[in-house]
Simulated assay, not measured.
Amino acid sequence: MARCLTLGMKLLDINYEVGDPPWLLGRGPLNGQRARCGCLSWYQPWGRCHHIAPFCWALGQRIYPGLNWGFLSGELHTVVVGFEENWQEPDWVMDILLFKEKTAQQSIDWVKLRNWQFYDSLREYVATFFDDPEAILQAWPGEHVMNDQKEIRSK
């Protein structure tokens, strides 16, 4: 999971280093957010849903390895969905930023308000952050990412 966290945060700030507090890259410090290492607040960079999504994907893979995991991403918001067969009928929605304010369906609806897309792999999702996504897809070796303890395969 740490590798996916670092990947997402580096997409936001190339100077991010392993162990840096992710929450400091969000708008939380400007709004009085406080966080404690090891607690959920530590992993909540407010306003950075697109960048924390790879971590949520890895978290979902770890908690529910029997589900397929993908990304619903739009201009306004990104969530990670876990599903058995159809991503349009998810069993789980990972939204570590807005779960207190929005239901799972409300988070999905917010994603779908403006220019959204479903990505069925971490590889496809990450490629969208670059000017030439096709070059990233060609350079990315295979459909996997090494999680901290085991290999996680994208579905």
Rank of each mutant, 00 (worst) to 15 (best):
G70N: 02
T78N: 02
R123V: 06
Q44L: 14
Q61L: 08
Q138N: 15
E75P: 11
P133C: 09
C4L: 10
K155A: 08
N115M: 11
L12W: 06
H51I: 14
A2M: 07
N86P: 01
L30C: 15
A104M: 08
E124G: 07
C49E: 15
E85A: 09
P22E: 05
H51A: 13
G8N: 05
L40P: 03
S73G: 07
L24F: 07
Y43N: 09
C39T: 14
Y43M: 15
V111F: 10
L98T: 11
V126H: 00
I136C: 02
E143H: 08
F55H: 06
I152P: 01
L40V: 12
Q44K: 12
T103Q: 12
Y125A: 00
E151M: 14
R153P: 07
E134R: 13
W57I: 01
S107R: 05
H50G: 01
G28A: 10
L76E: 15
L137P: 03
C37E: 15
H77I: 14
W110M: 08
G60A: 06
K100N: 06
D20S: 05
L25K: 09
N86E: 01
Q117Y: 13
R34P: 12
N15F: 00
F129R: 00
Y16K: 10
D95M: 10
S73A: 03
M1Y: 05
K155T: 03
G82W: 04
Q88Y: 08
P90Y: 00
Q61G: 07
L97D: 05
C37Q: 15
I136L: 04
V81T: 01
S154H: 03
E89D: 12
L76Q: 14
W46I: 11
G38T: 05
Y43H: 09
P45G: 04
E134Q: 09
E84C: 00
I136E: 06
R27H: 04
Y43D: 14
P29C: 15
T103V: 11
N147S: 07
P22C: 04
F55T: 02
F118P: 05
Q138V: 11
G66R: 11
I52C: 01
V18W: 08
P65L: 12
L113P: 10
Y119W: 13
Q33K: 10
V18R: 05
Q44W: 14
M9V: 02
E89G: 06
Q138I: 09
Q149D: 05
G38V: 10
G19R: 02
W110P: 00
A35V: 00
N31M: 15
D148M: 00
G60S: 11
L12N: 01
H50T: 03
I63K: 10
Q106A: 08
W57K: 03
R27K: 03
H77Q: 09
R114Q: 09
R153H: 13
M9G: 00
I96W: 12
W87L: 08
F99G: 07
E101D: 13
G26P: 04
N147R: 05
F71D: 00
I108D: 07
Q138P: 12
L122E: 03
Y119I: 12
G47D: 14
G28I: 11
S73T: 02
S154C: 04
S41K: 08
M146S: 13
E17H: 11
E75N: 14
E17D: 10
P90A: 00
N115F: 13
M146Q: 13
S73Y: 02
P45S: 09
N147A: 10
